[in-house]
């Protein structure tokens, strides 16, 4: 099980993409100088994180606190959202979730999908603003429901800086 990291410089911003598994064996990148823009971290393809990886992540992300433009987590996968809500410390105050996926499931045909919620559209610092708990299934046109417990999955929104 391994972690693939891709780093792209976009002007003064740094875009980081993590794919695979975040566990105790992962090596997170070191930035020799303070990032002058924003550090954007894409977690769309992060499939699993364990507590040992989370601890490494928590120490690493603290080291990014000096990033001038802040730290943004985007396209957070459901695996990450579950851990953000369970393992305190994964999301420090100066890091914010700018977009995350909500998994849906269709009881009619078994179709699974993920819907992306974006800050400023479906949620903001006050909580959920425009969000559908049920959506039509593209397969059989029945209703797909969220495959998560609302009070648990969106718990992180109540945290300062979320």
């Amino acid at each position: 099980m391994s972690l693939t990291i891709k780093i792209t410089n976009v002007g003064r911003d740094v875009h980081l993409s993590l794919e695979g598994v975040l566990d105790e064996n992962c090596q997170l990148p070191e930035f020799p100088e303070v990032i002058q823009g924003e550090l954007e971290i894409c977690l769309e393809k992060l499939t699993m994180i364990n507590s040992l990886g989370c601890r490494k992540w928590a120490h690493w992300i603290r080291a990014q606190a000096k990033t001038k433009g802040g730290v943004s987590l985007v396209k957070c996968s459901p695996a990450i959202m579950n851990q953000i809500n369970i393992l305190a410390g994964f999301l420090p105050e100066y890091a914010r979730v700018d977009s995350f996926y909500v998994p849906y499931y269709c009881e009619g045909c078994g179709y699974e999908d993920r819907v992306l919620l974006t800050r400023g559209h479906e949620f903001d610092t006050t909580g959920l603003i425009s969000f559908a708990e049920e959506v039509p299934c593209p397969g059989c046109k029945a209703i797909m429901a969220m495959e998560v417990l609302r009070e648990r999955y969106f718990k992180f929104l109540a945290r300062k800086g979320a």
Partner: peptide, 11 residues
């Protein structure tokens, strides 16, 4: 959650 993620990852 960890066991679920492991199953979904084929582990």
């Amino acid at each position: 959650q960890l066991l679920k993620a492991r199953r979904q990852s084929g582990l």
